[in-house]
Design a protein around this nucleic acid. Sequence first.
DNA 1: ACTTGCAGATGACTTAAACTCATCCGAACG
DNA 2: CGTTCGGATGAGTTTAAGTCATCTGCAAGT
Lengths: 283, 283
Amino acid sequence: MQVSLQALKAFESAARRGSFKLAAEELSLTPTAISHHIGNLESRLNVSLFHRQGRRISLTGTGIRLAKATSEGFRKIDSALEEVVKAGNTVRVTTTSSLAAMVLIPSQHEFEQANPDISVEISTGESVDSQSYIIPVRLGDVSVVEDSDVIRFESFNVFGAYGMTPPSWESEPITLFTTEWKNKALPAPPLTNWLEKNGLEGANVQLKTFDQELFGIQQAMAGNGLVFCSTTLVDRLLKANVLQHFDTQSVTSDLCYYVPGRDSFETRSAARFLNWIEDILNQ
Amino acid sequence: MQVSLQALKAFESAARRGSFKLAAEELSLTPTAISHHIGNLESRLNVSLFHRQGRRISLTGTGIRLAKATSEGFRKIDSALEEVVKAGNTVRVTTTSSLAAMVLIPSQHEFEQANPDISVEISTGESVDSQSYIIPVRLGDVSVVEDSDVIRFESFNVFGAYGMTPPSWESEPITLFTTEWKNKALPAPPLTNWLEKNGLEGANVQLKTFDQELFGIQQAMAGNGLVFCSTTLVDRLLKANVLQHFDTQSVTSDLCYYVPGRDSFETRSAARFLNWIEDILNQ
DNA sequence: ACTTGCAGATGACTTAAACTCATCCGAACG
DNA sequence: CGTTCGGATGAGTTTAAGTCATCTGCAAGT
């Protein structure tokens, strides 16, 4: 006893719609195909499933019972499938406001262009219920996150609005925006290291802090001072000649962007997105 | 989005059994086919459904969810199908003790021989809950049953044990078994008509009645007298030279065997059986 | 009553998919 | 190490799924 699932599908549709023609439309087939399928089914099962009254058809008792079960069964399968499909072609990312605003959102379009079948949703804030298919891109401490989860090691430098006169560190007081994370567990931006490396320990800097790098960068863009922030975030702004860096050297930090359980993501969309984001973060 | 149902079936099996090889056995396919199906599924859905760890596989989260739904869905369909199949290749008949004992049961084997795929269950008595797939063969009044439901019009005659000396109706008293139905609505056996037709109104008959023809026939077989009964029932016994008839003429009656809703039976087995029974009843 | 149109049945043919075979790969186990 | 086992991959083949052309039979319109 071997009945083909397609035949059952054809039957289910015909039973539900009450017509071979309509079933054919629904399944993008010809009415002939439906007729063949149902004929096949009936002969294999040795039962009539439809009464044929000329061009009008109606289910037999057995047909009704079978239709009920198949409809329910296929409905169950279809809805699960639909869910999987949805999960399969949309990528949900959640990350810090800064990374979102400076990197992800500006290049979101580019990714969708390159992957027309994938739609991307970006959200910020931690409140999002950790659905299995939401990809969190977090800022963390290199010493505590899994090596394989890291997608970008952060280095820091000082930047200012494009075209401004280079700061003279010794003489005038300089406004420098930096960041103090709300999350105290995170390593602070390596400002001391940077000053050392660039021989500016004695510089006359006036520090102003925000809890997100984004705000300092905006201040710098507005010409209200310089910003000490991660190179990742400003990369795009440098290329766009909105910000510039001076002849200072960047310093590495203990910070990195990472995705917890990076290789546990099941959808190809997620994998594609992760590879892509890693690429653009690392040039 | 088009995913093949066979692919889903392959996935469901592989998920349930935890191995492509076992799924292949279950579906009578090669492991290669399973692999192809699942690969196809994964690429169409853009998700991984299994983690491959060398030769060991395990479901991903999405895989688990999908497997749950597909298993349930297919199980539902399969069980309904199984029921239909069972209904499709067994025929249940219920009828009078007489017809069952004298006709149906003796020729049951012959039918099953000719239709090896159909199994027949015969039961007597009215108690059977009228399941839609039980075929009732009833004795009824030709004037009340639908013409199309009739499978055999009854005529009556007198029979006796094979080889007995023909009765001399005039002289000796003759024991004649006949039937008085428990159901008073049924037309009585046309004994008066028969006596008239054969010019035996004056015969010296001693009537004994049972409520089933079967018993009278058995008495006649045992040589305890003659029986006035329907020709249908004794046909086989005549051919087997167990009973014989004399030079009397049979009379028609208002009785018939019929199947209520004869043409509403959905299974081919039922149709086949009905045609067959109609054939043997009418020679 | 005779068309006309529609829905389905039937059979021959074509195409697409499902399946297999041959081969390869990598993990586990002796 | 080499062997075995389960799965992946790609090319080739078979099967069944679908279409086309034709036919039937009911129903509605004229």
